[in-house]
Simulated assay, not measured.
Amino acid sequence: MNKQRSELFKTGAPLPEMFSQYFIGQAYLQPLTDKGGPIFNVTFEPGCRNNWHIHHKGGQILLCTEGRGWYQAWGEEPQELHPGDVVNIPPEVKHWHGAAKDSWFAHLAMEIPAEGAANEWLEPVDDETYGKLK
């Protein structure tokens, strides 16, 4: 397991309960700005991932900054993520993202502002699906 970390941005505090209920494992949240669209540094401990979810109206952009992680859109193959990778998630796409089993992972999450934008949290990524990832 990769225990060494190269934090580009501060890890922040454990997710508040209103979000942590939608994660398997521990993640941390550090707000970076609230100007324009808010930007957050989200850090996942090894094995942590969020539930399937949908960003209605606005979508989301992930800028990967640390470690190794995964992104998967519903009906598509998972994509391995590394620092420097960018994931553009269009609105209305069911997806999940999180750390690899053996690595911390961090990304900047940017919500795309849109009138009526909302986030819908869905079912967890089950252990069988996650366990198949390398």
Rank of each mutant, 00 (worst) to 15 (best):
I61F: 08
A118E: 14
F44Q: 06
N41C: 11
I112F: 06
F44G: 02
K101P: 01
N41G: 12
Q26D: 15
N88A: 06
Y71T: 05
M110L: 13
Q30C: 11
H56N: 12
I39Y: 08
Q72I: 02
V42F: 08
G67I: 02
E80P: 00
L62G: 08
W121L: 00
Y28A: 05
N88H: 11
V42I: 15
K94R: 09
A106H: 10
Q60M: 05
W121V: 00
T65C: 05
Q21W: 03
K10T: 13
G98L: 00
D126F: 05
E128K: 11
S103K: 01
Q4F: 02
G25D: 04
P46W: 11
W70A: 01
P38L: 01
Y130K: 08
P124Q: 01
I61E: 13
Q26A: 13
K101H: 15
E123F: 03
N2S: 13
E123W: 02
N119E: 12
G131A: 13
H55K: 07
F23T: 08
L32E: 09
F44Y: 14
N50M: 02
D34A: 13
G98E: 03
G75A: 07
A99R: 07
E76D: 14
T129H: 12
P46R: 10
W96E: 08
Q30K: 15
E92P: 00
F40A: 00
T65S: 14
K94G: 01
H55M: 03
G67Y: 00
H53I: 00
F19Q: 11
F19T: 07
W70H: 04
P31V: 03
C48N: 09
W121A: 03
H82R: 14
R49I: 01
H55T: 05
H55V: 04
S103P: 01
L122R: 00
P90N: 04
C48G: 12
V125C: 08
F9M: 08
S103Q: 03
A99M: 05
Y22E: 04
G98Q: 06
R49S: 06
S103H: 15
G12K: 11
R49P: 00
